[in-house]
Computed example of a mutant assay.
Amino acid sequence: MLSVDDTLHSNSQAPRDLVPSRYALRVGEIDALVVSDGVLPLPTATMATNADPADLADWLNHMFMPPDAFDWPLNVMVARSAGQTVLIDAGLGGQFPGFPRAGQFPQRLEAAGIALESVTDVIITHMHMDHVGGLLVAGVKERLRPDVRIHVSAAEVEFWTSPDFSHTVMPKPVPDVLRSTATSFYNEYRDRLRIFEDRHEVAPGVVVRITGGHTPGHSVVDLVSGDERLTFAGDAMFPVGFDHPDWHNGFEHDPEESARVRIGLFRELAQNRGLLVAAHLPFPSVGRVAVDGDAFRWVPVIWDY
């Protein structure tokens, strides 16, 4: 039996994860893979900027979470449909100091047997640094095929030409880093961008559609095949959102619209009974949404080994 010591001191050049970092499933004829990009520590105050601090403290205690900081999960996805390999978001990357447990997607993608050279399309739900930063890691662009198509909404590209942070409540250094990262992403990949307006089918059964809210061009991705479906919701929802969908996240550029988008997606998913994956729900974040009146409940799937 392999011991923890054997794992930590393996002769293999590639380190082995002690916990699973990818989860595969099928959505009809579409192969899907959720990949953990790691975790990002953030102040808990960013989780509910319009809530009474006592109410937030009670929720954190109820959820067995620490009072001051929490680990924000980072998830990306890969979908294979009709010969296309579609990467959905690209994680944080490694160019930001102080986040050693994030930016894991490139090596974890390779460990899953998916070469960057095989990616035909990339969908960017929005241009925050933890969704485009992975494409700025040294060596990543060079390995992507020259004809790779990177799909992002027109509203998102337009927003980042002069972003508005007036309704956000972020740690002080973050807005400048978000702005510079979005600019770097655009400058590096502008010749590969495929801009869409409202809705676009990237591959058979893989559809990206704009929701707005979190950012003006924020989008979600639907995988639909036969009578099965999965929605990758990007940053439309966070763990606290099921109990308190009206609580605002500090990274939302339009908090009121974000709440409306979140509630609308919850109701849509409860009605169509499709699977949900989101960038910042605990890995692998595959589950469903149950609704009872104005109350929502997260129902994780049982892992299928």
Rank of each mutant, 00 (worst) to 15 (best):
V78S: 07
K172V: 13
R273K: 13
P255D: 11
I210K: 14
L56F: 10
Y23H: 04
A233F: 02
A278N: 08
D58G: 12
G212V: 01
L178V: 15
G205S: 10
P239E: 02
T161Y: 07
G98M: 05
D243W: 09
W247P: 01
F70G: 10
A82Y: 04
S3W: 03
V220P: 04
G94Y: 04
L40K: 09
S81N: 04
L87S: 11
H248P: 06
A182R: 08
T49R: 07
P97I: 07
A79V: 14
A295R: 13
Y305E: 10
G250W: 01
F232V: 02
T85D: 09
L178Q: 15
D198K: 00
R194M: 13
A270D: 02
D55G: 03
R179G: 08
D227T: 15
V207T: 14
F99V: 10
D235E: 15
L116K: 14
W72T: 04
D6N: 08
P239G: 09
R192F: 06
W303A: 12
R80E: 15
I210H: 04
A24R: 11
P255F: 10
N50Q: 06
G139F: 07
L269G: 02
Q107D: 09
G217T: 09
L74H: 08
V286S: 02
T46F: 02
G139Q: 11
P216D: 12
V34Q: 00
N75K: 06
E156H: 15
R108I: 15
S180V: 10
M65F: 09
V177I: 13
I263N: 00
A69C: 04
V34W: 01
S21R: 15
R16S: 02
Q107F: 08
F185P: 02
M77Y: 02
E110G: 08
Q84S: 13
V76P: 13
Y186T: 13
L136R: 08
V177M: 11
S3P: 04
P43V: 08
S36R: 02
R16E: 04
M47L: 12
I88D: 05
M129S: 14
H131L: 14
D235M: 11
L265N: 03
V291A: 05
H167L: 14
V291K: 00
R145S: 15
H218V: 07
A295G: 05
G213L: 03
E268V: 03
S36L: 01
D71F: 08
R22L: 14
M47W: 09
V286L: 11
S12C: 06
W72F: 15
A14G: 06
A51V: 01
G28R: 12
G293M: 10
V132N: 08
L60E: 03
L193W: 04
R260K: 09
V206N: 05
G103W: 01
H167N: 14
V206W: 05
H200A: 04
P97W: 02
A54G: 13
D254M: 09
D246C: 01
L144K: 05
A270G: 08
V78T: 10
I114V: 15
T211H: 03
D176G: 14
D246K: 07
D191E: 01
M170H: 07
A112T: 07
P300N: 09
D294V: 00
Y23V: 00
